[in-house]
Design a protein around this nucleic acid. Structure first.
Length: 559
RNA sequence: GCCCCGGUAGCUCAAAUGGAUAGAGCACAGGUUUCCUAAACCUGCCAUCCCAGUUCGAUUCUGGGCUGGGGCACCA
């Protein structure tokens, strides 16, 4: 909350007390403030009169007028003096606050002073957060779906860090289990296929059929020179080889996508640590585990799940859930205040049981937040690009990187809120035209750099006086207003865990800048005006750099 | 059948805990450059799935319907 908003909140609370006799809850007053959608409704707006009118049986406009009178008393003195120009009652009973010009322009000073830290705010509570994302099984290359999760997770981490939290980016590596075994068998099959020229044999339905295993098979042959008949450990060798090769590829893709994990948490190591058994014992001790039909069950229905879940199958092996429970238990034990998981839509049924398990273990389930990133549909212009994992064909993250590059890729993955389906138009992302929002924003940033260069070459000394009061036309006011909203946007993105808010903001700022630029010369004969406008565009550039940084998109100086 | 996410302009999406005349971009039609990058700008056109309810006020909340996607394992 900005200090002006805070002062207004306090003043308004006092005014309410004087007008209706009782002090209102501070939270209600604060919540009544918003930044109006439209500029003509002022810089801040409160709907408190509308809210109070029912309870106090007074028409909202009349009530608002009374509050306005009380508030106007305070405009002559600090902290509101020279900051609030006027207060108006508008619409059905909104109280609208209009800042003075000096106050509007004061954001420039703040940006100059704070630089890239501008927009940061001290969180109410600084949290230690574990953000788990991607966590794709190392059975094949990363797909577009993982791309979205990677972009989302990394950007979220940047936003949370910007807001003062400590974030650990973690990848849970499912490096053992049924799927990895199948992967090993699939590679063994491919190797034999090559060595024994046995291409006619049908690959079993459940095997990983993607072409990428053929390449890995060739590498395997080159390295080990295996000869039939294959020894007993052949398949095991294949399993390890395939798994590790694929994981290498995944890590390379992530690196090239600009996503760096702080840690990779191995399911295999977890299994060997004895932690899973310990967690199971803990659950047993809590009395939430029972035996039935030869299997071991978790009574998750006690914690709001639809049905109870099997922990240990009747064949003695664990389900996927069991080590995962242990893993999340360990996350809490490692001292994180909050856990955030980003999962694909196929996992949504999984959330309830995972939360149930953590509650059973004595953790507050609300400290585990699971974000479901909805599916991505690829388009090439109008035409949908079909993906089918089963046939072993899918569009990979690598292809996105090769086709549209890192910046456009990341940007387009972030452009919608994560719980909405995403249409990703490859043709648009590739295009270098004004319809492409990435270029639109980056171009604005580069254009400002160009103005700065021009200014450096043509202008002499800067005027000493503060000339920001010269920024009065509609474009300049619009930009100033947007700049002062940046902080609120970042805070909203932090609260909702939605980076797309930053995207939308940057698009708006870019539009405002381009419009300003089209109508106004920055560098002119008027030294004071030039100075003021240089400050303005420099401030815009700072915010672009900051905002693009939160998305993990570069801010080029030249295009 | 149950659960989750959706349904807003021709298309893709916004809209703060229920607020003011529902905003953008694309597409379409037209226009703008002696000047800091035309990768830009300007003008015009077009919308809340349906039916009730709550409310001073509903895209937002409630109920019912229609509709798109995903999920409902001793798979991972």
């Amino acid at each position: 909350m900005s200090d002006l908003k805070k002062s207004l909140t306090e003043r308004l609370a006092l005014a309410i007390e004087k007008t209706i006799g009782v002090p209102p809850p501070a939270a209600d007053v604060e919540a009544s403030f918003e930044i109006p959608r439209e500029e003509r409704f002022g810089d801040f707006s409160s709907n408190i009169a509308l809210k109070l009118s029912r309870e106090h049986k007074r028409p909202p406009r009349a009530l608002a007028e009374d509050l306005k009178k009380q508030l106007e008393e305070g405009l002559k003195d600090p902290p509101l003096a020279r900051r609030v120009e006027r207060i108006a009652v508008e619409g059905p009973g909104f109280l609208n606050f209009y800042r003075t010009r000096a106050e509007q322009a004061s954001v420039l000073e703040r940006i100059e002073k704070e630089g890239e830290r501008f927009g940061r705010s001290a969180p109410e509570k600084k949290k230690k957060i574990l953000l788990e994302f991607v966590s794709a099984n190392p059975t094949g290359p990363l797909t577009v779906a993982h791309g979205r999760q990677a972009a989302l997770g990394d950007s979220l981490a940047r936003i949370l860090e910007f807001c003062g939290h400590r974030v650990t980016r973690e990848y849970y590596n499912n490096d053992e289990g049924v799927q990895i075994n199948t992967l090993g068998q699939s590679l063994a099959f491919r190797v034999k296929q090559i060595l024994e020229k046995d291409a006619a044999r049908e690959m079993p339905e459940n095997y990983y059929r993607g072409e990428y295993l053929v390449g890995i098979a060739k590498e395997f042959i080159k390295q080990f020179n295996p000869k039939p008949p294959h020894p007993k450990d052949f398949e095991e060798k294949c399993r390890i080889f395939a798994r590790d090769k694929i994981m290498e590829g995944i890590q390379k893709d992530l690196k090239d996508f600009g996503v760096a994990f702080d840690s990779y948490y191995s399911q295999e190591i977890l299994g060997k640590s004895g932690r899973v058994e310990k967690t199971l014992e803990t659950l047993k001790a809590k009395g939430v585990v029972y035996e039935s039909e030869g299997a071991l069950w978790f009574r998750s229905t006690d914690f709001g799940d639809d049905k109870d879940r099997v922990l240990k199958k009747s064949d003695g092996s664990y389900t996927y859930l069991t080590p995962d429970i242990s893993y999340h238990h360990h996350k809490f034990e490692r001292g994180f205040d909050e856990l955030i998981n980003i999962l694909g839509p196929d996992h949504h049924g999984y959330i309830a049981r995972l939360k149930a398990s953590q509650e059973a273990l004595g953790h507050d389930p609300s400290r585990l937040r699971v974000l479901i990133a909805q599916l991505v549909t690829l388009f090439e212009g109008e035409k949908q690009v079909r993906m089918s994992t089963r046939a072993g064909e899918f569009v990979t993250l690598r292809e996105i990187l090769d086709e549209v590059g890192r910046d456009a890729g990341r940007f387009f993955f972030l452009v919608r809120k994560f719980d909405a389906h995403l249409d990703f138009d490859l043709a648009l992302a590739k295009s270098q035209t004004p319809d492409n929002p990435v270029f639109y924003i980056q171009y604005a940033h580069a254009r400002i750099e160009s103005i700065k260069n021009h200014h450096r070459e043509t202008s002499g000394a800067a005027p000493s006086a503060d000339s920001s009061e010269r920024l009065t036309n509609e474009h300049e006011r619009r930009v100033l207003r947007l700049l002062s909203q940046y902080r609120e946007v970042v805070i909203a993105a932090e609260r909702t865990l939605e980076p797309y808010r930053v995207v939308a903001y940057l698009e708006e700022l870019a539009a405002a800048f381009h419009k300003f630029y089209a109508e106004n010369r920055v560098v002119s004969d008027d030294a004071a005006l030039t100075h003021a406008r240089m400050r303005l565009v420099t401030a815009i550039q700072t915010v672009f750099r900051s905002g693009l940084g939160l998305l993990g998109v570069s801010a080029p100086l030249k295009m």
